[in-house]
Simulated scan of single mutants.
Amino acid sequence: MSFAALESDFYGYADLLTDRERDALADLRAWLEADVKPIIGGYWERAEFPMQVVRPLADLGVLSFAWEETRPFENSSVFRGFVALELARVDASVGTFVGVQNGLATGSLAVAGSREQRDEWIPKLASGEVVGAFGLTEPLSGSDSARGLRTTARREGDEWVLNGEKRWIGNATFSDITIIWAKDEADGQVKGFIVPTSTPGYAATKIEGKISLRPVQNADIVLTDVRVPESLRLQHADSFRATAEVLRATRAEVAWAAVGTAVGAYEAAVAYAKDRVQFGRPIASHQLIQDHLVNALGNITASLGMVVRASQLQDAGTLRDEHSALAKAFATARMRETVGWAREVCGGNGIVLDHHVARFFADSEALYSYEGTREMNTLIVGRAITGQAAFV
């Protein structure tokens, strides 16, 4: 499949990719357009996840590109960012599944797992044989997870006993394992655990009534005397620093997904404007419509420049928390503006699923908040600017 640059990539950032990377993106885009885009509206409306996408995502390499144990060819962080963009451009919920499976769950193993744990679990996650989830956020602890974590871990011989609750955990209603982050009662430090979801005392309940990312199966998790062996403790996670390292990379990926969501809404609005006739001509010929579209493209182009640079810093090993935080805060804010303009271009038709814009409009609200709210990310950047922490 030959690669064609997106018209929304106005400055041609995809030219930074290798031929092999562009070929892989072309294959992914073709599958998304043929097999996901036509069906996803129904799954969104029913709040169901299309489980049939998991195996093709694995076959396309989407779940394995980042990891030395499984990657099919050498690739860059910019390429992997474009993968996140392509996914969100068609559906942010499918993109979120990948972000949880590949970024948070597998990323936890890559950052904090032992060699033996990596060798055992990363290939299973990359193939889709095992579905993973990431249990950090709690009912009373979201933005203050670093200090406010209430889930506890107590060591008893060669086992750990986990107790607590988690909330908003993506994939958790059908995951095979969940990475649970808990505070060690002995030393007060945050540690990570690979918890098979079949373990007695583990219960996950789907969160109902969402208006955003409806196919994503977020769950409330209750852990009641859940026993896991020492062999399932992430061996290199001895403080919240390991958790933060996982989030640093995935926060940048969410920024890419925000750009993809904006691109999807923008492209749908352009198509609608060309087809919709009012006052005897397509509304694409109206000045106010063109103004909305140009503003949207400007947001996309500015955000794309920021996330590309963040990915280059990641490849160079110089990406810092404030780099990811600024990209996430900026890109999601510009996304929120962009989907609003796209909905406005479509008028009343912008609130129905037929033209896709309504889905992007609603889904943007989740991306705006998860992996750190805009306010929390501005405080991370503000601390870097001033040297003063202003979190409380």
Score class of each variant (00 low, 15 high):
residue 2 S to A: 10
residue 3 F to D: 03
residue 3 F to E: 05
residue 6 L to W: 02
residue 17 L to Q: 00
residue 22 R to S: 06
residue 29 R to D: 09
residue 29 R to K: 12
residue 31 W to I: 10
residue 32 L to W: 04
residue 32 L to S: 05
residue 34 A to E: 15
residue 34 A to P: 06
residue 34 A to S: 15
residue 36 V to R: 02
residue 36 V to D: 00
residue 37 K to A: 13
residue 38 P to G: 06
residue 38 P to I: 05
residue 39 I to T: 13
residue 40 I to P: 06
residue 46 R to A: 15
residue 48 E to A: 11
residue 49 F to C: 05
residue 50 P to Q: 05
residue 52 Q to K: 10
residue 53 V to W: 01
residue 54 V to P: 01
residue 57 L to S: 09
residue 58 A to V: 09
residue 59 D to K: 07
residue 68 E to S: 12
residue 78 V to Q: 00
residue 80 R to S: 01
residue 85 L to E: 01
residue 86 E to R: 01
residue 87 L to Q: 03
residue 87 L to I: 00
residue 89 R to N: 06
residue 89 R to W: 02
residue 91 D to A: 06
residue 100 V to R: 10
residue 101 Q to R: 04
residue 108 S to T: 03
residue 111 V to P: 09
residue 115 R to C: 10
residue 118 R to M: 07
residue 118 R to T: 01
residue 120 E to F: 01
residue 120 E to Y: 02
residue 121 W to T: 04
residue 121 W to R: 03
residue 121 W to Y: 15
residue 123 P to I: 03
residue 129 E to S: 00
residue 130 V to N: 10
residue 133 A to S: 15
residue 134 F to V: 01
residue 135 G to H: 03
residue 143 S to M: 14
residue 144 D to V: 04
residue 149 L to H: 00
residue 152 T to P: 10
residue 155 R to D: 12
residue 163 N to S: 15
residue 168 W to Y: 13
residue 175 S to I: 03
residue 176 D to S: 05
residue 178 T to M: 08
residue 180 I to A: 11
residue 184 D to I: 01
residue 189 Q to W: 04
residue 195 V to L: 11
residue 196 P to A: 09
residue 206 K to Y: 13
residue 212 S to L: 09
residue 217 Q to K: 03
residue 217 Q to S: 05
residue 218 N to L: 12
residue 219 A to F: 08
residue 222 V to S: 13
residue 227 R to L: 12
residue 227 R to G: 08
residue 238 D to A: 10
residue 239 S to P: 01
residue 240 F to S: 06
residue 241 R to C: 03
residue 242 A to P: 04
residue 247 L to M: 15
residue 254 V to G: 09
residue 255 A to P: 04
residue 256 W to Y: 11
residue 257 A to P: 12
residue 258 A to G: 15
residue 259 V to H: 07
residue 260 G to C: 08
residue 260 G to A: 08
residue 266 Y to D: 00
residue 267 E to Q: 13
residue 270 V to Q: 09
residue 279 F to N: 12
residue 280 G to L: 10
residue 281 R to N: 06
residue 281 R to G: 06
residue 286 H to S: 14
residue 291 D to E: 15
residue 292 H to F: 15
residue 297 L to P: 02
residue 298 G to K: 11
residue 303 S to N: 01
residue 311 S to V: 00
residue 324 S to C: 05
residue 325 A to K: 02
residue 326 L to A: 14
residue 337 E to F: 06
residue 339 V to R: 03
residue 341 W to M: 09
residue 342 A to Q: 10
residue 345 V to L: 09
residue 348 G to M: 09
residue 349 N to M: 15
residue 351 I to T: 12
residue 355 H to Q: 14
residue 355 H to C: 12
residue 358 A to P: 09
residue 361 F to A: 01
residue 363 D to R: 07
residue 363 D to L: 06
residue 363 D to G: 09
residue 364 S to I: 07
residue 365 E to G: 15
residue 367 L to H: 01
residue 371 E to S: 14
residue 379 L to N: 14
residue 385 I to P: 03
residue 385 I to H: 07
residue 386 T to F: 03
residue 386 T to R: 02
residue 387 G to A: 05
residue 390 A to G: 08
